[in-house]
Every structure is written in C-alpha cells, then in structure tokens.
Amino acid sequence: MSGKRKTTRVVLRLDNFGASAPALQAIAQLARAMEAELAARLVEDNRLLAALAFNAQPSADEASDASARHAERRLRALIESIATQSELAWSFDIVRCAGVMAAECTLHADDLLALALPEIERAMDVLREEISNGLARTSGVLLMPHAQPARNRPVVGMITDEAGLSRTVASCADLSASLRLPLSFVVVDDRDLFARVRAAAASHWSEAGAVALHAVPTAQLDILAAHVRSLRPKLVVWAPPPSWLKELLARPRLLREIGAPILLLGMESPSDKAA
C-alpha cells in the first residue's frame, strides 16, 4: 500500500469446517490486488484432538483423522484452483496448535490475516480472540462474510477519528485503483475531520472519477454501520480506534451490520508495535 509497508502475504486461516468458495475467491482477488502471496494455513486444533478422547465412539480417532485428511485434500485443491485462476502466488500448510494460538504460530508483521466467516458464528469467543491477535500481530484483519456483494460496488473507507485517517485513505485508494472500483468515504460528522479526509483523498486519488464523501452525524457505531451498508460496498476499510475496537469485539454482530467484507487496519504499524 502506498506510503506504507507492503503486505507480503494474505494469510488465510482455514479449519476443517471449510469455507465458502465465493469468500475464498474474494480473498484471492484482494490478495492479487495487493500483489501479495495467498498463504493458506489449515489450523488443526489440538484441543479438539484432546476432547475427542471423551467421545464415546471407540474409532473416533481414526475417523477424525480420516476426516481431517479428507478436508485437507479438499481445501488444498480448492485453494490451488482459486489461486491458479487468479494467477496468484500461493502456499498451503497445515498448522497444528490450539486454535487461539494459531496467530502466534503463523503470523508476521507484514501479513494480512484473512478470516472467512461462517454464516452463523457458533464460537464467537474464538473469533474475538483471532481478531484481537490478528490486529496485534499483522497489518490488518480481513473479515470475509459467507455471501459476497454484487460487483461494481464501491470500496468504502470508514473514518472515525484522526488516528486512522491516513492509513485508511491510502489503503482505500490503493485497493480501489487495483480493483477498479469506485471509492467512497463515510466520515463521522466532524468538520475538521471531513476536511482532512477530503485533502487526504485528493492527495492519494489519481484515478478517473470523483471520490464520494459522506458525513454521518453520529458517533454511534451501529448507525455508522447502517450508513455504510446503505452504500452497498464491495469492501469496507476501517482502522478502528481502541475504544471502537472494544465495542466491535463485544458486539461482533456489528461486523455483519455492514453486510460486506471488512478490512480492519491496525492503528499502528505492526513493526512499530513490535519495537
């Protein structure tokens, strides 16, 4: 991303529960737009292996192992097919660790963690941990919903405060240009902030067509999310400040309020954080 450290890998966290093909294709498309490698990591949760010992079925271990191998083959073939179609550099590895520890096992500062969300999340606490860990260790977390929005929709940047402005505008501009999509910004209603967004957009945007700026007279996340959804975005980019991130993680439903893929950007450079 311009002016920023380049994302080298989009790490796609997979598990044996699978993921929807449209979501995976959308992630691959984004990886291509970022000129990053698609690094698929199949996490085999150690906790499950332990828990299966309590299963009443005597052959559960064997069945579970066979099932895992089958899921692995299927996912590998799917990723290979999608990556080949997208002419994308790709890798596929199996990571064995406790689920919540996967981030530590697999992620680097220049990575972008991609999570394909199930239609109904039944392990919300796990998701919260993964988002938190991802934002702490990578340049961002991409939350890809089960269903994909239609084509030719805009990339929408959510600007909620000064801190995330520059990164959000830059990322949005890059992705919008790469994906050849319109660009819009939804800005929390603050005159100065709005002016800065306008200036930042002007400096980053060199493509044909205007950038749409929408001021929303509220600082409530759900109202903001509803406004973003009304734009039917193809992708939402947001660098949430800590307070908002806390709210988001407390109410993961807000992720779906937007009704589109969300790229959550870390507030600071991961390398800075590491330092």
Binding site: N16, F17, D45, R47, L48, A50, A51, L52, A53, F54, N55, A63, S64, S67, A68, A71, A98, R122, A123
Partner: peptide, 26 residues
C-alpha cells in the same frame, strides 16, 4: 467444561487450567 466445535458436530471436554484435560489425567 470446554465447548468445542468439531467437523462432525459439537463436543464437551473437561478443562483444567484453561486447557482441555488429557484423558490420562481424567
């Protein structure tokens, strides 16, 4: 008790110190 999702459904397992208890410990 841990509430875990498996590819074939859900399962429960006893927890000790936040980790799933090993069968031998159980």
């Amino acid at each position: 008790i841990a509430f875990l999702r498996t590819p074939t459904g859900f399962t429960f397992a006893p927890l000790v110190d936040g980790q799933v208890m090993k069968p031998e410990a159980f």
